[in-house]
Deep mutational scan, measured.
Amino acid sequence: MQFKLIINGKTLKGEITLEAVDAAEAEKKFKQYANDNGIDGEWTYDDATKTFTVTE
């Protein structure tokens, strides 16, 4: 399945997509990506659109 991450950071904004088996795997990958890029914020997930959002 394809999942999307919307980044609303203080210095980094944008979207990325990835393939994952389920939402838990996608969340783990997205949070690792955010951590690697210094993004720390409030996370939400919309199951209907398979979209994660992180807002700093």
Results as ranks from 00 to 15, higher is better:
1 M>S: 06
1 M>C: 04
1 M>Y: 11
1 M>I: 12
2 Q>F: 13
3 F>Y: 04
3 F>C: 02
3 F>W: 14
3 F>A: 01
3 F>R: 00
3 F>P: 00
4 K>D: 04
4 K>W: 13
4 K>C: 03
4 K>A: 13
4 K>Q: 06
5 L>V: 03
5 L>F: 06
5 L>R: 00
5 L>A: 03
5 L>D: 00
5 L>W: 02
6 I>H: 08
6 I>L: 15
6 I>Y: 10
6 I>S: 04
6 I>K: 11
7 I>L: 05
7 I>P: 01
7 I>F: 15
8 N>S: 11
8 N>T: 14
8 N>Q: 08
8 N>E: 10
8 N>A: 11
8 N>C: 06
9 G>Y: 10
10 K>N: 12
10 K>W: 06
10 K>Y: 05
10 K>I: 08
10 K>A: 12
10 K>E: 04
10 K>V: 11
11 T>P: 06
11 T>S: 09
11 T>M: 08
12 L>E: 07
12 L>G: 07
12 L>A: 15
12 L>H: 11
12 L>R: 05
13 K>L: 09
13 K>T: 09
13 K>D: 05
13 K>N: 15
13 K>P: 10
14 G>E: 04
14 G>C: 04
14 G>A: 14
14 G>S: 12
14 G>W: 07
14 G>K: 09
15 E>H: 14
15 E>C: 07
15 E>T: 08
16 I>V: 15
16 I>R: 12
16 I>F: 09
17 T>E: 09
17 T>W: 14
17 T>Y: 08
17 T>N: 10
17 T>S: 13
17 T>A: 13
18 L>K: 07
18 L>M: 08
18 L>W: 14
18 L>G: 05
18 L>A: 11
18 L>Q: 08
18 L>T: 05
19 E>Y: 13
19 E>D: 05
19 E>L: 08
19 E>G: 05
19 E>Q: 12
19 E>A: 08
19 E>C: 05
20 A>M: 05
20 A>V: 06
20 A>R: 02
20 A>P: 01
20 A>I: 04
20 A>K: 02
20 A>F: 14
21 V>T: 07
21 V>S: 14
21 V>M: 11
22 D>N: 12
22 D>H: 13
22 D>T: 14
22 D>K: 04
22 D>L: 05
23 A>S: 13
23 A>H: 14
23 A>P: 15
24 A>N: 05
24 A>E: 14
24 A>V: 06
24 A>Y: 09
24 A>P: 05
24 A>K: 08
25 E>W: 05
25 E>I: 14
25 E>K: 06
25 E>A: 11
25 E>C: 03
25 E>G: 08
25 E>D: 04
26 A>T: 01
26 A>Y: 00
26 A>I: 02
26 A>M: 02
26 A>K: 00
27 E>K: 10
27 E>Y: 15
27 E>Q: 15
27 E>F: 13
27 E>I: 10
27 E>A: 15
28 K>E: 07
28 K>F: 10
28 K>D: 05
29 K>I: 07
29 K>W: 09
29 K>E: 04
30 F>R: 00
30 F>W: 02
30 F>N: 00
30 F>T: 02
30 F>Y: 03
30 F>E: 00
31 K>A: 05
31 K>W: 09
31 K>E: 03
31 K>L: 08
31 K>I: 06
32 Q>H: 05
32 Q>F: 13
32 Q>T: 07
32 Q>I: 15
33 Y>N: 02
33 Y>G: 02
33 Y>E: 02
33 Y>D: 02
34 A>I: 06
34 A>S: 08
34 A>N: 03
35 N>M: 11
36 D>I: 13
36 D>A: 09
36 D>W: 12
36 D>N: 09
36 D>R: 10
37 N>W: 12
37 N>C: 03
37 N>I: 11
37 N>D: 03
38 G>N: 09
38 G>T: 06
38 G>V: 07
39 I>V: 08
39 I>L: 09
39 I>S: 02
39 I>Y: 06
39 I>E: 02
39 I>Q: 02
40 D>W: 13
40 D>V: 11
40 D>F: 12
41 G>M: 02
41 G>N: 01
41 G>L: 02
41 G>V: 02
41 G>C: 02
41 G>E: 01
42 E>S: 05
42 E>F: 15
42 E>N: 08
42 E>L: 10
42 E>D: 14
43 W>G: 00
43 W>S: 01
43 W>A: 01
43 W>T: 01
43 W>F: 09
44 T>N: 11
44 T>I: 08
44 T>M: 12
44 T>G: 15
45 Y>P: 00
45 Y>D: 00
45 Y>S: 02
45 Y>L: 02
45 Y>I: 02
45 Y>K: 02
46 D>L: 05
46 D>N: 10
46 D>A: 07
46 D>Y: 12
46 D>C: 05
46 D>Q: 13
47 D>C: 10
47 D>H: 11
47 D>F: 09
48 A>P: 15
48 A>D: 08
48 A>F: 14
48 A>W: 08
48 A>S: 09
48 A>Y: 13
49 T>Y: 11
49 T>P: 02
49 T>K: 09
49 T>R: 15
49 T>D: 14
49 T>M: 09
50 K>H: 11
50 K>G: 10
50 K>M: 08
50 K>R: 09
50 K>E: 03
50 K>C: 03
50 K>A: 10
50 K>I: 05
51 T>D: 02
51 T>M: 08
51 T>N: 03
51 T>G: 02
51 T>Y: 04
51 T>R: 03
52 F>A: 01
52 F>G: 00
52 F>S: 01
52 F>K: 00
52 F>Q: 00
53 T>D: 03
53 T>I: 12
54 V>F: 07
54 V>Y: 02
54 V>T: 02
54 V>A: 03
55 T>K: 08
55 T>Y: 05
55 T>G: 10
55 T>V: 09
55 T>H: 07
55 T>I: 10
55 T>D: 14
56 E>K: 08
56 E>C: 04
56 E>V: 05
56 E>Q: 13
56 E>N: 08
